[in-house]
Every structure is written in structure tokens, then in C-alpha cells.
């Protein structure tokens, strides 16, 4: 962070790295881009992730997925709750970081508080969404027929560009609470909180590989996020018509589930609901023969 004037001490600037498989590597490509404030001053150098970073992240996410899905709903809830606790403890840091990136003080406070609350909200849903969305279905044969949800698998995610923390949390939380693992491309405009949020995840009990966070250019990575054959769903939050179209086209190759969350105001309470969890769930229906 910026050095205070008059202080003799040289402040130690933070290196913003990416988060893959529970580790904080620099981008494999060695490339960076400078994040600037409104006056053109450099705030930080941010990793410009390459498609190879993305590929590595997918490998990590795929490896972590079965174990995370197998964890009990109760445990996944506890882990998410723990993330909220950790975020609460570092509230001031996140507010300062948002302000540094040009967000107003009041707006920043609100964003961090809402992010914490949203984590708690989805933590609470962990052991409840299954009951709400599952069903016993009436069928006209001697079968006991029921449908339950199973996680879609590995989810790639283009986080909202204009909400550095809240937008990210609002998409990651419902995805992982349902047993998915994800690879997130952080906001290109406001990437700092995403990296700090990775540190929060790291300090909580989220297993490595469950959430992987990359920073970099949308234009470079969107295609890969949509086309990778080992990704089962893609969530995008702001894409123009043309991008959305090409993204859906690329996603069709392995029939990815495509979730569009454009034009969402993440500050509104209408932006939190359990259907966000169901977006990355698959319905499994079982026909079980029963005696007459």
C-alpha cells in the first residue's frame, strides 16, 4: 500500500499473486499488468494469468472436486462459516483495499459487511438446499421415484467486473457450498480484493483446489474458460451480446452448463437466494422398484 508521507520507514508492498491448488504462485507466464488509480498512479502490479495458469487451475479443481463433494453438508457449511469469520477479522484490510481502488469509504464498508453476511447466508443453506430442491415424484408404476441434487463438478467463473469483493463472494459461495470446485477470473478493474480473499480462504479450512483465483485480462482468458473440455459449467456476470454468444458457442462442445448472471445488483437482497446454489447442481432421478 502507499507509503504515508513523513514516515521514515519504507513500507513493504504486497505482491499480489494468484491462487491455485491451495498455493500462491506467480503466473507461469511471468507477465504483469499495472493497476492504476484515477490519477494514473500505480497501486499494484497484478499477475496477468495465462491459459496455462488456467489449465493448471482446472487440474487442481478436478482433483479436489470428489473429496469436496463427499464432505458432509454440515462440514461444508462450517467451512463457509469459518471463511466468514476470517473475513470479519480482516474487515479493515478489505475496506482499505477497496478504497485504494477508488471505492468510496461508506460503499466499501457496506460491501465488506454484505460479503461477510452473504457467506453466512450460504453457509446456512449448506444442509438445507438438498431438502428444498429434492423431491419424491408421483409415478404410475410400482416404483419409488425420487430426485436429488448432485454437484455439476468443476465450474469456471468470470466474476463481476464492477464489484471486486461482493460480486466474487456472491458467486463463489453458492457454487462451492453445493460441492463444486471452481476457477475464478477476478474482476479486471478491481482485482486486489480477490487475491486477499484467496488468503482468507487459505486461512480457513477450504481444501486446496476447491477455489482457484486468477487475475488477468478478460479478453485473453474468456475463450479458454468457456472451451475447456474438463470444465462442467461456466458462470459469467457481465458479457456483451457478442461475447456471450461466442462463450455459449464454445461451451457447447462438451455441453457445459452456462449460467448468465448479467445485470445483477449484488448489493440488493434479491441477489441472494438458494436458486444460485441450484444453478450448478444436476438432478439425479432414481427409480426404485417396490412391491405392491
Amino acid at each position: 500500500m502507499a507509503q504515508k508521507s513523513g514516515s521514515k520507514r519504507l513500507s513493504v508492498a504486497k505482491t499480489y499473486k494468484i491462487y491455485i491448488d491451495g498455493k500462491f504462485p506467480r503466473t507461469e507466464s511471468g507477465r504483469y499488468f499495472a493497476l492504476e488509480d484515477s490519477k494514473g498512479g500505480v497501486i499494484a502490479n497484478v499477475c496477468r494469468s495465462s491459459r496455462k495458469d488456467f489449465r493448471n487451475a482446472v487440474v487442481a479443481a478436478r482433483k479436489a472436486q470428489p473429496g469436496w463433494a463427499k464432505a458432509s453438508a454440515y462440514l461444508r457449511g462450517q467451512v463457509l462459516y469459518r471463511v466468514a469469520e476470517m473475513l470479519e477479522g480482516r474487515r479493515d484490510q478489505f475496506i482499505a483495499e477497496l478504497v485504494l481502488q477508488g471505492v468510496g469509504q461508506r460503499a466499501a464498508e457496506k460491501e465488506v459487511d454484505l460479503s461477510i453476511d452473504r457467506l453466512i447466508y450460504f453457509a446456512g443453506w449448506a444442509d438445507k438446499y438438498q431438502q428444498v430442491f429434492s423431491a419424491v415424484n408421483p409415478v404410475s408404476s410400482s416404483h419409488f421415484n425420487f430426485s436429488i441434487l448432485e454437484p455439476t463438478g468443476v465450474v469456471s467463473m468470470l466474476a463481476p467486473n464492477d464489484s471486486g469483493l461482493l460480486g466474487l463472494v456472491s458467486n463463489v459461495a453458492p457454487t462451492i457450498v453445493g460441492g463444486n470446485t471452481c476457477i475464478v477470473l477476478a474482476s479486471e478493474k478491481l482485482p486486489l480484493c480477490a487475491v486477499s480473499f484467496a488468503e482468507v480462504l487459505h486461512a480457513s479450512d477450504v481444501p486446496g483446489g476447491v477455489v482457484n483465483i486468477l487475475t488477468g485480462h478478460r479478453s485473453e482468458l474468456t475463450g479458454q474458460f468457456a472451451s475447456h473440455m474438463d470444465v462442467n459449467a461456466i458462470i459469467y456476470c457481465d458479457a456483451d451480446r457478442k461475447t456471450a454468444q461466442s462463450l455459449q458457442h464454445a461451451a457447447a462442445d462438451n455441453i457445459k452448463r452456462v449460467v448468465s448472471r448479467t445485470r445483477t445488483d449484488w448489493f440488493k437482497s434479491s441477489a441472494q437466494h438458494p436458486y444460485l446454489i441450484r444453478d450448478t447442481q444436476e438432478v439425479k432421478t432414481t427409480w426404485h422398484p417396490i412391491g405392491v
Binding site: M229, D230, D253, N254
Partner: peptide, 9 residues
Amino acid sequence: TGVYQSPDY
């Protein structure tokens, strides 16, 4: 193909 692959296929 230019597309990263999955063991599924």
C-alpha cells in the same frame, strides 16, 4: 483443436 481436453473423452 486449441481446446484443453478432459479425460472423460
